[in-house]
Simulated assay, not measured.
Amino acid sequence: MAIATLTPALAAALDALPASRLPALLCTMPKAELHLHIEGSLEPELIFRLAERNGVTLPYASVEALRAAYAFTDLQSFLDIYYAGASVLLQEADFFDMAWAYLEKAAAENIVHAELFFDPQTHTDRGVPIDVVIRGLARAVERARTELGVSAALILCFLRHLSEAAAFGTLEAALPWREHFIGVGLDSSELGHPPSKFERVFARCRELGLHVVAHAGEEGPPAYIHEALDLLHSERIDHGVRCLEDPALVQRLAASRMPLTVCPLSNIKLCVFDSLAGHNLPALLDAGLCAMVNSDDPAYFGGYLNQNLVETFAALPQLGARQAWQLASNSFEASFADAAEKARWQARLDTFFLTAAA
């Protein structure tokens, strides 16, 4: 990966920016989002609208009652309600509407590139054909590029609480629509489902030329990160915050510029950290790791990308304009976009901060 250069002029510009300007700069700087579960962007209002359209009865009396249920004690308690919310997604138009709502939000938040996770097994296990899922999402992605100026791509995720055989079946079912997704990921319940469980299916995905990423080191131990690297050959580690428990792993991640797609508000909502003030994002950056901020499941975790950035920087005063630039730069570096696009986005980012300090 090409690493952006912090020139003396840019460094001086970043150092000249006062902390009071950070919230606005975080919201308006160009950036990429690489850890976003599209089903996790399904807001209660849209859930109820789709439920009415599709004749689905929800176990909640109102939008307010559903939102009040978003009190999670761990990853599994979140997943239980996450899958219930996804039950309203039945038609191609539903998947389009869900993705389009997020992509409009992305455009408003100055996200120039987004790589969206989707969980086909959540839908195919309910009898929704996989082509309905992929075609609806792909139509939104294509339209976003032309109408919103947002570059976007899809990453198909396997649910790790299901079997590797089920993942193979999902992969084969998706291959007729291979042109619409750029890679595969691994998500859902981490504890008890190590990356090694999916070694063979990830090997098949690499043979097909797909990018591969994996959730590891969120609730699971650093050993899961090692497995994701050694057995799955993951090109990014989604979350990865527990890597600091293993100094040798930190050195390895730093030396290889292995991206960590960190999700601060998610980490608080799911009790990975007690508070944002105790989050280890500054330590990850200080260790030279290619970390960036993302929103994970923003409808459930209390904020989209800009809110994650603003709240995290407010809680961690050691983060300043240099770190803002670094996080955005890392997001471009870690994306699966081509080198020319990355260079254009990086130039926009550098110009943005130089202009802001002028």
Rank of each mutant, 00 (worst) to 15 (best):
residue 5 T to A: 14
residue 10 L to E: 09
residue 17 L to I: 15
residue 18 P to H: 07
residue 21 R to N: 06
residue 22 L to Q: 05
residue 24 A to K: 09
residue 25 L to F: 04
residue 27 C to H: 11
residue 28 T to C: 06
residue 30 P to E: 06
residue 30 P to Y: 08
residue 30 P to H: 07
residue 31 K to F: 05
residue 31 K to G: 02
residue 35 H to P: 13
residue 39 E to T: 07
residue 46 L to T: 11
residue 50 L to C: 10
residue 51 A to I: 08
residue 52 E to L: 14
residue 54 N to E: 12
residue 55 G to Q: 07
residue 61 A to F: 02
residue 63 V to R: 13
residue 72 F to R: 03
residue 75 L to P: 01
residue 75 L to A: 01
residue 76 Q to K: 12
residue 79 L to P: 01
residue 81 I to F: 03
residue 81 I to Q: 06
residue 82 Y to S: 03
residue 92 E to Q: 13
residue 102 Y to F: 15
residue 107 A to N: 02
residue 113 H to I: 01
residue 115 E to R: 05
residue 116 L to D: 04
residue 117 F to R: 08
residue 117 F to W: 09
residue 118 F to C: 06
residue 122 T to P: 00
residue 125 D to S: 14
residue 127 G to T: 12
residue 142 E to R: 15
residue 145 R to T: 12
residue 146 T to H: 15
residue 149 G to Y: 12
residue 150 V to C: 04
residue 156 L to T: 05
residue 159 L to N: 09
residue 160 R to I: 08
residue 161 H to V: 05
residue 162 L to W: 08
residue 162 L to Y: 13
residue 167 A to P: 05
residue 175 L to A: 05
residue 176 P to C: 03
residue 176 P to F: 05
residue 186 L to E: 00
residue 190 E to C: 05
residue 191 L to P: 00
residue 194 P to H: 11
residue 200 R to Y: 01
residue 203 A to H: 14
residue 209 G to L: 13
residue 212 V to S: 01
residue 213 V to E: 14
residue 225 I to E: 02
residue 227 E to P: 03
residue 229 L to Q: 00
residue 230 D to C: 00
residue 244 L to S: 06
residue 252 R to V: 07
residue 253 L to D: 00
residue 255 A to I: 07
residue 257 R to W: 12
residue 261 T to W: 00
residue 263 C to M: 02
residue 264 P to T: 03
residue 273 F to G: 00
residue 282 P to D: 05
residue 290 C to T: 14
residue 292 M to E: 04
residue 294 N to E: 12
residue 301 F to C: 04
residue 303 G to S: 06
residue 308 N to C: 15
residue 316 L to K: 03
residue 317 P to I: 07
residue 320 G to A: 10
residue 322 R to K: 12
residue 322 R to D: 01
residue 323 Q to M: 10
residue 324 A to S: 10
residue 326 Q to E: 08
residue 337 A to F: 06
residue 339 A to S: 15
residue 343 A to I: 04
residue 344 R to M: 13
residue 345 W to N: 01
residue 346 Q to T: 13
residue 347 A to Y: 07
residue 349 L to D: 04
residue 350 D to G: 07
residue 353 F to A: 08
residue 355 T to C: 12
